[in-house]
């Protein structure tokens, strides 16, 4: 039931991007989609154990008991990919917001339909 919920979060963001006319709302939808994608990657890399406290983060705490770590740690690769993805996401969102501010300065509105009307 976890993966469909994550996908539902993505669909909420997609609905916001497709159906809203406010540019800031569209940026919010993009941010929600980005969160859902990041969360999906981390969910894919989780390794379940009988007890919740047995699961280990991919960080070594001692040189010994490598085998124990190897069988209990979660997947480090999706975490590494998502770590860069989060920072890229904030850069891209800042760029989109800069465009929104510029459009507001130019047209005096956030509404994309009104912008189209004002242009003609």
């Amino acid at each position: 039931m976890v993966f469909p919920l994550c996908f539902a979060l993505f669909v909420v963001g997609l609905y916001c991007v497709l159906a809203k006319r406010n540019t800031v709302k569209i940026v919010i939808g993009l941010a929600v989609m980005e969160y859902a994608t990041n969360l999906f990657f981390i969910l894919l890399g989780y390794r379940k154990q009988p007890r919740l406290a047995d699961v280990q983060a991919p960080i070594r705490v001692s040189v010994a008991n490598l085998d124990d770590f190897f069988f209990k740690a979660v997947d480090p690769l999706p975490q590494a990919l998502v770590l860069t993805s989060i920072v890229i996401g904030v850069g891209v969102t800042a760029l989109a917001l800069a465009l929104c501010i510029r459009l507001y300065q130019r047209y005096g509105t956030f509404d994309i339909d009104e912008m189209r009307r004002l242009k003609g």
């Binding site: 990041n38 969360l39 981390i42 969910l43 890399g45 989780y46 699961v55 280990q56 983060a57 991919p58 960080i59 740690a73 979660v74 975490q79 998502v82 770590l83 989060i86 920072v87 996401g89 904030v90």
Partner: peptide
């Protein structure tokens, strides 16, 4: 992220 054992990501996510 914290519950999924990704503490690096939790720190970055909350700051971002």
């Amino acid at each position: 992220f914290l519950f999924l054992m990704a503490p690096d990501l939790a720190i970055v996510q909350i700051a971002v």
